[in-house]
């Protein structure tokens, strides 16, 4: 059975360009236009239809990946692609530390590693726009950003320590059928640093720099969405080789047929 699964993975990796059918554990996200908190001149962005992983990638799944692709193992990874914290909650190349749970989201992974993982399955990392689009939903609404409870819940997670040790699938499923976008770990996005946040958030209101961050921001389309401010702040602080305790990822896949 196991060998079958492996051969399937290899099969997928080899023929990824031909195969778009691997949709197990993914849900269909119907694209639309929406107004993000930040973005290109604060205008409406368009998101095409795509599929998204229901859960973030787990330790167990990532273990299978590094078994298959030794170059992403802790001791073999090229330093340019992952800093010293890479998989630092692993005992060795193939084993988690005893304190870690295989069904917890994988963290301490760099952007390069996350990207490679997704590509190996014929998938890719979601863009910021895609991620935010799905993440603005709650259990009953596609755009819950106006709800007080939605923002309050997310903010309270930001204040909860050690949530990265929780298991996947314990937060409420949102209307798309996706779990854990909030309340578990931060997640890598394909273009995490496309909305540049300089770190001097008050300067970012300057139109010249096209950055709309900070509490002083008057350009933000949704002034009260502080939760999103914090996501953009964390993304802005990252470099692609960083591996962090509270940062994991999930994959998405394009849907080819045009509607």
């Amino acid at each position: 059975m196991k060998t079958k699964a492996f051969s399937l993975i290899i099969f997928c990796c080899v023929f990824q360009t031909f195969l778009f059918a691997q949709t197990e554990g993914m849900v269909y996200i119907e694209g639309s236009r929406y107004l993000p908190l930040y973005g290109r001149d604060s205008t409406v962005v368009e998101v095409n239809d795509f599929k998204m992983d229901v859960y973030p990638v787990t330790n167990k799944e990532f273990k299978q990946f590094v078994e298959k692709f030794p170059k992403w193992q802790k001791s073999k990874v090229i330093k340019l692609f992952a800093d010293d914290s890479y998989l630092s909650n692993w005992k060795n190349d193939l084993e988690l530390k005893d304190t870690e749970n295989p069904d917890s989201p994988v963290t301490y992974v760099s952007w390069f590693a996350a990207k490679a993982y997704c590509e190996c399955q014929g998938k890719r990392l979601p863009t910021v726009d895609e991620w935010e689009y799905v993440a603005m939903a709650d259990e009953t609404t596609k755009d819950a950003r106006v709800k007080l409870s939605y923002n309050a819940k997310i903010l309270s997670w930001y204040e909860t320590p050690r949530s990265n040790e929780n298991l996947i699938g314990q937060t409420p499923k949102n209307i798309w059928g996706v779990y854990d976008l909030h309340g578990l770990v931060w997640e890598w996005t394909l273009d995490f640093n496309s909305v540049l946040i300089t770190g001097e958030s008050r300067k970012d209101v300057d139109k010249d720099s096209n950055l709309f961050c900070g509490s002083a921001s008057v350009n933000a389309t949704d002034l009260m969405n502080y939760a999103a401010f914090m996501r953009y702040a964390i993304r802005g602080s990252l470099k692609a080789k960083y591996a962090m305790k509270n940062l994991g990822f999930r994959c998405v896949q394009d849907v080819n047929e045009k509607k």
């Binding site: 914290s85 946040i197 300089t198 770190g199 001097e200 958030s201 008050r202 300067k203 964390i234 802005g236 602080s237 990252l238 470099k239 960083y242 591996a243 962090m244 305790k245 509270n246």
Partner: peptide
């Protein structure tokens, strides 16, 4: 502020 913007673990 700008020079000291630092991610967790850094």
């Amino acid at each position: 502020a700008e020079s000291s913007f630092v991610a967790p673990g850094h």
